[in-house]
């Protein structure tokens, strides 16, 4: 098992190098640091001196890949590629374009993101499975048909409207919870409730429908016929036989998302003013702070790869047929 994980982590290295190259090309080849400086300082009336100063302050004044002015190894290390891209491998994110420590920011903002994302995941899983089980139990009846239509309607609404609607109804009309904001400790609870509710409602449409098809697919299998031939009740057939098999694709589908929970939800956090990583990214995008975006791309990729590994491991835990090799 450990050997397997170690091997998978080794596989991850070329992928992270690839990610790094893509971001490097995007951020430094398509547009040179000069372009970025010019944009940050305003298009017109930029003196070359101002550009040089902007670059020097942020460490963009070095050559991209090879520094001809240096000797030996430093010719490679005193470059933007080394300083800005390779440093990411040791999780040294450096400073943002406005001079903040990105690593520290990420650590600070991780927790509010998790405070939203974890309950959304857990309760979402429960509600979606419940809805899907109900529909599967009443399959091919009017309840099922009506339920599916309702789910399709739910999933046809943009997430933005769930947020706006939720803020309007619960926050503005009913005054139950604050519309947005965040606080530390247990005081955060009243800020968390609404975003979590909104996200749950938004997730039911696609989640419930997807799980329903998984359930129906399992119900069509031969072992279900065997279970019925044993004289088991429909309830037992569904809960003991179908649910257990359906949980394999459902759980493993969820596991890949687990690490990405740290990344938070972009829109949810930004709408509700939650100081998490999601809103961090949005703020960075809107402020065009490329250092932060670059770091978050790398963090996201690392988390995704961890998710893939966890998925494989979770298969072996829930599916007796699969053994790691």
């Amino acid at each position: 098992m450990l050997a397997y994980i170690a091997r998978r982590l080794l596989y991850a290295i070329p992928i992270l190098i690839g990610v790094n190259l893509i971001t490097f090309m995007l951020f430094f080849i398509v547009n040179t640091p000069d372009d970025m400086a010019r944009m940050h300082l305003g298009m017109k009336h930029v003196t070359p001196q101002a550009i040089e100063k902007w670059k020097a302050e942020r460490g963009y004044d070095k050559p991209l890949l090879y520094n001809g002015e240096e000797e030996g190894l430093t010719a490679l290390t005193e470059t933007i590629f080394f300083e800005k891209s390779l440093r990411l491998f040791v999780f040294d994110f450096g400073l943002s374009d406005d001079g903040r420590d990105i690593g520290h920011d990420i650590y600070q903002r991780m927790w509010p993101s998790l405070a939203i994302a974890v309950p959304v995941l857990v309760f979402g899983l429960l509600t979606n499975i419940t809805v899907a089980m109900l529909l599967a139990f009443f399959r091919a009846t009017y309840i099922d048909v009506a339920g599916v239509i309702a789910l399709v309607a739910l999933m046809s609404i943009s997430s933005l409207f769930y947020i706006i609607g939720g803020q309007f109804v619960i926050g503005k009309l009913l005054h139950l919870v604050p519309i947005s904001g965040y606080d530390s400790g247990m005081n955060a609870l009243k800020f968390i409730v609404l975003p979590v509710l909104v996200a749950l409602l938004y997730g039911i449409g696609s989640g419930g429908r997807w799980y329903r098809t998984i359930f129906l697919e399992e119900i069509g299998k031969d072992y279900v016929r065997t279970a019925r031939a044993k004289g088991l009740s429909e309830r037992l057939v569904l809960f003991r036989h179908v649910l257990k098999n359906a949980m394999i694709p459902i759980l493993t589908g969820v596991v890949v998302l687990l690490p990405l929970l740290f990344m938070g939800s972009l829109i949810l956090e930004s709408f509700f003013g939650i100081p998490g990583l999601g809103s961090y990214v949005i703020d960075a995008i809107q402020a065009q702070d490329f250092a932060i975006v670059r770091s978050m791309v790398f963090v996201g990729s690392v988390l995704y790869i961890i998710g893939l590994i966890l998925t494989d491991i979770s298969y072996t835990l829930v599916d007796p047929r699969i053994r790691l090799s």
Binding site: I15, V19, I22, T23, L26, F27, V30, N31, D35, M36, R38, M39, M43, L260, M263, L266, V281, I285, Q288, F290, V293, R294, M296, V297, G300, S301, Y304, I305
Partner: peptide, 23 residues
């Protein structure tokens, strides 16, 4: 490509395009 969170890849690319167009 898949390991880069989609929205970040899009954001980076579009931002870069915008810089390019603006310059």
């Amino acid at each position: 490509l898949n390991s880069i969170p989609g929205i970040l890849l899009i954001a980076s690319a579009i931002l870069m395009l915008q810089v390019y167009i603006d310059t």
